[in-house]
């Protein structure tokens, strides 16, 4: 029983450390990408028209 518990603990530790490692590497890569992408043009983003809800309430989508 103890052995099974030990194996489960080891698996849990490997899972947690692996997850942490994945997120650390992802964060570092994201920062590096941001440095190189800073000069390039960002994508234009349009927000939903503010009067959309009013129009919707009036039945004018």
């Amino acid at each position: 029983m103890k052995e099974i518990g030990a194996v489960l603990v080891v698996l849990a530790v490997v899972f947690i450390v692996g997850n942490c490692w994945f997120h650390i590497v992802e964060a570092v890569l994201r920062r590096i990408k941001r440095i190189f992408m800073r000069d390039s043009d960002g994508q234009v983003w349009h927000t939903l028209p503010k009067d959309w809800e009013d129009g919707d309430k009036k039945g004018e989508p």
Binding site: H46, P49, W52, G55, D56, P61
Partner: peptide, 13 residues
């Protein structure tokens, strides 16, 4: 509601 939002966004751009 989402179909109407999609329409509003699409017609905007």
């Amino acid at each position: 509601a989402n179909a109407k939002k999609m329409r509003a966004l699409f017609d905007k751009v």
